[in-house]
């Protein structure tokens, strides 16, 4: 009898799990994850807040002429250098202030001294604040693009770029994390968010 059993087993084909449908199952799962995946990159306007003020220590003095004051009131109206102004003019005026090089007595001594100060009211709409901040950053970006195109600062000093780029963004995209940003090192942006009034 054992012999017979053995014989029958040998006759039988080897039992196998059919794997033909495996790929279909995997594809189905793959398509599900493909559809649900969102590879989104966070974008925004980067800022660095000023460190906490020591009550005994006074903020560093900034010469009046170097400070470019932008005030935004509760209605979203602008007061630029003590005069009502329009946001459309802002970019041009900020650039003029930064690139003054001591020419006009009311504007900055040099780009590294220039400080753009933005002050808001409690009821200022956030979108207006972002618009103003965006305009100020774009003023700097336009100058940086100029540097990226020529490889020189507006005063003609070389910033040490290996080649020229068509825009600052293009140069920025070539940087690896940890690389020094030569354009921003040579021509830094100083944008200050003014202390809010403490209501007294």
């Amino acid at each position: 009898m054992p012999g017979l059993l053995e014989k029958r087993r040998e006759d039988r084909e080897e039992a196998e799990i059919p794997t033909a449908g495996m790929a279909d199952i995997a594809f189905l799962l793959l398509i599900f994850f493909l559809v649900t995946t969102t590879i989104n990159v966070d974008t925004g306007i980067g800022m660095t807040l000023p460190p906490k003020l020591d009550p005994d220590q006074k903020p560093p003095p900034v010469k009046e002429r170097n400070l470019f004051k932008i005030l935004v009131n509760a209605k979203g109206e602008l007061l630029v250098e003590e005069e009502p102004a329009d946001i459309a003019q802002l970019r041009r005026r900020v650039k003029k202030h930064i690139l003054n090089y001591g020419e006009s007595p009311d504007l900055s001594d040099s780009p590294s001294d220039a400080v753009i100060s933005i002050k808001t009211d409690t009821k200022t709409p956030y979108s207006t604040y972002i618009d103003v901040l965006d305009e100020v950053w774009m003023s700097y970006r336009e100058i940086w693009t100029q540097i990226a195109r020529t490889g020189q600062t507006p005063q003609g000093e070389s910033v040490g770029l290996a080649k020229t780029y068509s825009s600052y963004q293009e140069y920025y995209n070539t940087l690896e994390p940890g690389d020094p940003n030569k354009i921003r090192d040579a021509f830094g942006a100083q944008i200050s968010i003014a202390e809010p009034d403490t209501g007294d």
Partner: peptide, 27 residues
């Protein structure tokens, strides 16, 4: 975008207290 700056300033003051100075206005 329809928020007011008051609350944003308050949060920023708190971040300064905490020492978290790098911020990003997501847009």
């Amino acid at each position: 975008e329809e928020s007011e700056m008051g609350i944003v300033n308050e949060v920023q003051q708190e971040l300064r207290e905490a020492g978290a100075l790098r911020i990003n206005y997501s847009s």
